[in-house]
Design a protein around this nucleic acid. Structure first.
Lengths: 393, 393
DNA sequence: GCCACTTATGAAAGACACTTGCATAACTAT
DNA sequence: ATAGTTATGCAAGTGTCTTTCATAAGTGGC
């Protein structure tokens, strides 16, 4: 890694820079006429014209039909970002389902698929299910595989930088699976793997309860409670990808949250029992309400510890155990506040069980942006050459 | 704040870019001849020549005498970064002393001063002491005030983004002091204020035990234990500048660390008594060793909580209570490891009580770099115009 | 002390990108 | 149909970078 990436540049670097600026403006600021775009980007009209010509050749920009009658004078040609030039694919893998989300380059969801599978399914079967779900998702979205520019997958557990699941307690046999490498074979583009709580955090900041917050902690309450942190708007992974594994410290009450809700569980599937307790609590069943109270008391300390360490703008509660308006959220709010000197907003997820899949899409889009707006060499919009396997970042 | 700072650029932006790259290479990679520099930066020789001419006009680069006899052929002109073109000043304010560190633009310390003052000194007196110490430090370094390009000050307590001390328990009357504004009047350049533990973290990564680590937590053990975190190489402050105030949560054992060491304290100054206990423990006095053990047991949980939340590359222990090789460090290492699933390096500070002052210098230098290498407008090397008051970031 | 060799310098020519300015094209309104 | 308005296309001019070549200033051998 070079200590300073700013090497000298030819005149052609100027073009790359202006090209990137124009493309970004067109994507984020919406379509427009040549003169409008020139003004918005801060370039002259002839330059903008040249840049747009290049971008059209690369297939990233398309020309719309002019609109006669839109005003005085000669109608202007209109240009727009070709959102369907490429696609991002997000996968959410957990113990019981596989969810695939397909989005275009602006992040608009264009299709997807959900597949259910047995909690006890071995890794080989689970990965096969992912491949099948991807196929179904692509068909649903009418997207060809070769237009995929990046893929990201979320999984419970600790994910190493190379995309290996270092440890995972909730999916049998999942520890040690080289997920990025396994999935990489199926795609002609980079494949990223990331912890599910981290992806949920990305999603909540993108389109959920934490829109535009810079420092966000997302608590993903499920069988095992994980945490994802966005600090300064960027995902914090930690040295070993293990950031947020605060569930390990017993004092902080985030371990085995589901089990805590159902202390005297039947041998059957734990999760359904936990959901039943939450439903009972909502209906006012005293025993169930007590159980929720106990859980809130335990979790509050863990959340407070995180809030004290990070001083985030807000904490988003997500995962299967949280439902909007649930008593658990109110209870946590009440118990965490007195433990923290600075005010922390605590909100329930707005995305429900789509958060991880959406977060995966966001991560894939970030990877695409990295390539699309890089300045050191002309970005390739041709994914066929790539055969990368990598974890996030 | 603009959503995307990349606006279009003239040809002149290319020059600014290459100018910045050359300056950076000259500073970080050391002096060299014209051709060497051209090769290092990746530019042609004539371009490099032009850029160096500009940089010399701005006073940032100087020409050395050629060295005859250094090799075959015509001796090349040599260029070097003018480290003394400007200076950074760091201030470390705590309950009992004021420390001033003066450094040149490469970060080399060129002078400083330490002043002692009463713990009970009121804010007005303390700020006067800072001004006097600055004066003495500048004289010691033979640096004129107008060559200061940035100043940073560290203080215990929570510091708001505008440089106000929001809360501070260890310096009487310090809460509410608008430190950045007060100090700003004395300097013709930006004045930043930052929490002392945060600055210690910066220093340890710069020149201390955490060199080149990207994710570092620095525990500053003093009357009140604070924490500074560098995540992804950047300071993490939190929404209210309160990140790391984990001492608030009693379970985590980082509150009133000094008091814990001296449970049955005399009414006199607490700090000396704590230091005596540590010295006794080093000499093997049983009661003192027990006290250290108790303290270690308490702190270990707080440190483990931070390690679990952040998964840092390493934890650096600093502050007056830590001395290199002290039993406290070994004891903490032994107790934290079993609580953390991923291995965490725990090291004692290499900088001792200079860490905060050095960190302040680093912060000031970062502020200088921001201005020196900005691309949207030609950087001003003339500080006389500025009258900024600001907090860090 | 002179000559060949080596390396740096300085100036000129060419390429690339951006800007300004003007004549022309296309559409609306009267 | 004509005037007014806005967009377009082309040309001229400027700034920056690169390549190339003749020249300057040293070293080492004879």
């Amino acid at each position: 890694m070079t200590p300073h990436s700013l090497h000298g540049g030819d005149p052609s670097m100027l073009r790359r820079l202006n090209s990137a600026a124009t493309l970004r403006e067109l994507r984020d600021g919406g379509e427009g006429t040549l003169s409008e775009l020139a003004a918005r980007v801060g370039l002259s009209r002839p330059t903008t014209e040249g840049v747009l010509g290049e971008l059209m050749e690369r297939g990233l920009v398309a020309e719309d039909a002019p609109r006669p009658g839109a005003g005085l004078g000669r109608p202007a040609r209109r240009y727009r970002f070709r959102a369907r030039a490429g696609h991002a694919l997000g996968v959410d893998i957990d113990a019981r389902r596989v969810r695939v989300v397909v989005a275009d380059l602006t992040g608009a969801v264009v299709g997807g698929h959900v597949a259910v599978l047995a909690e006890q399914a071995p890794p080989r079967e689970r990965i096969a299910a992912v491949r099948a779900a991807v196929k179904a998702g692509l068909r649903d979205a009418s997207v060809e595989r070769r237009t995929l520019w990046a893929v990201a997958a979320g999984t419970p557990g600790v994910v190493a930088p190379d995309g290996t699941v270092t440890s995972c307690t909730v999916i049998p046999g999942w520890t040690g699976v080289r997920l990025a490498r396994e999935l990489g074979r199926s795609f002609p583009c980079p494949v990223l793997v990331e912890n599910d709580a981290n992806l949920a955090a990305l999603a909540e900041r993108w389109r959920g309860a934490a829109r535009d917050a810079d420092d966000v902690v997302c608590v993903h309450a499920a069988l095992h409670t994980g945490m994802g942190a966005l600090l300064g708007g960027r995902l914090h992974r930690g040295r070993w990808g293990a950031a947020g594994e605060i569930g390990m410290l017993p004092e902080l009450g985030l371990r085995d949250t589901t089990a805590a809700l159902v202390p005297d569980a039947d041998p059957g599937p734990l999760f359904e029992q936990a959901e039943r307790v939450l439903a009972d609590a909502a209906r006012g069943v005293p025993a169930a309400r007590d159980a929720v109270q106990r859980l809130a008391a335990r979790m509050a300390r863990g959340i407070a510890a995180m809030a004290l360490v990070l001083d985030p703008e807000m904490v988003v509660l997500g995962g299967p155990l949280i439902r909007t308006g649930d008593a658990l959220v109110a209870e946590l709010r009440r118990r965490v506040a007195p433990l923290c000197p600075s005010p922390v907003r605590i909100e329930a997820s707005e995305l429900g069980d789509e958060s991880v899949g959406l977060g995966a899409v966001r991560l894939a889009l970030d990877r695409i942006d990295e390539n699309l707006f890089r300045l050191d060499r002309p970005a390739d919009t041709d994914s066929s050459a790539a055969d990368e396997h990598e974890a996030a970042q």
